[in-house]
Design a protein around this nucleic acid. Sequence first.
DNA 1: ACTGTTGTCAACCGTCTGGTTGAGGATGCC
DNA 2: GGCATCCTCAACCAGACGGTTGACAACAGT
Lengths: 146, 146
Amino acid sequence: MAADPLSRVFAALADPTRRDMVARLAVTDSTVGELAEPYAVSVQAVSKHLRVLEDAGLVSRSRDAQRRPVHLEAEVLDLMTTWIERYRRQAEERYRRLDDVLASMPDDVAPTDVSPTHPTDVSPTQPTDVSPTHPTDATPPGGNPS
Amino acid sequence: MAADPLSRVFAALADPTRRDMVARLAVTDSTVGELAEPYAVSVQAVSKHLRVLEDAGLVSRSRDAQRRPVHLEAEVLDLMTTWIERYRRQAEERYRRLDDVLASMPDDVAPTDVSPTHPTDVSPTQPTDVSPTHPTDATPPGGNPS
DNA sequence: ACTGTTGTCAACCGTCTGGTTGAGGATGCC
DNA sequence: GGCATCCTCAACCAGACGGTTGACAACAGT
């Protein structure tokens, strides 16, 4: 199990069954048994998948007698969206600038990669989240998984 | 290696080193050696990571003599964003409706989960992407990885 | 109390993953 | 040509992962 929250969340959604369960939980809370029903795997396997989702903070489990209603903690998805959008925007701005440079110059000169002209405070030129001691990623806002 | 594109992309970003490389590539294209430099792992390990990113469609590698400039295919990130936003919005609408119901009723009646009152065409009540034969997820728009 | 339902834990298994070392090809410089 | 630089491939390894079966606890109905 990866230690940092972002890795946990991405890893949790790397499995199609888990992704499908998240999609269904977006529609309505469900018990473990209900979640397991459409899949050709055992309930134990589904319980295991839910453990992964819970440890990633993506779902929470409550009790209703012997049933375990599962609830999607949708705001945890923001963790990923924030990360993705941050770097996607950055890259696309750069590519747009490269397109502009290409459009404004003769055909026989090829420019090199257009880097930012001044370092920004989001520049990840130093590794930011591969520190082996403690990752600097934000904790999931959904609360403490287990 | 997972077969479907979404699983590949999520899995690719589940590793902090790979995530960091993507973040750095958002700023500027880099060679394998440049990407490897800040990490306490071998160049071979980094090359392997890049293979994963390439197979997920997130990066492309070109040739410049013996160097291998690596380019981020940022639009592939949209694959994940699209998926995430779809279900996050759905869930949050549901929770908002539940909050409204709670606000409009006496304190001694607890409602059950608020499901959509009519099925929508995005309802994932049937498994959509765990079909063992062929996943229905979209192919990465960044082109064919390898 | 007995039986059925629901779900988790433990152990096991085959496969995958993130790292390693060793080898070697492509390219550039002297 | 010899040497340096850059990078990939292959094989190996320990640990992780997605599945299984068996066992069992909590709960509900008769």
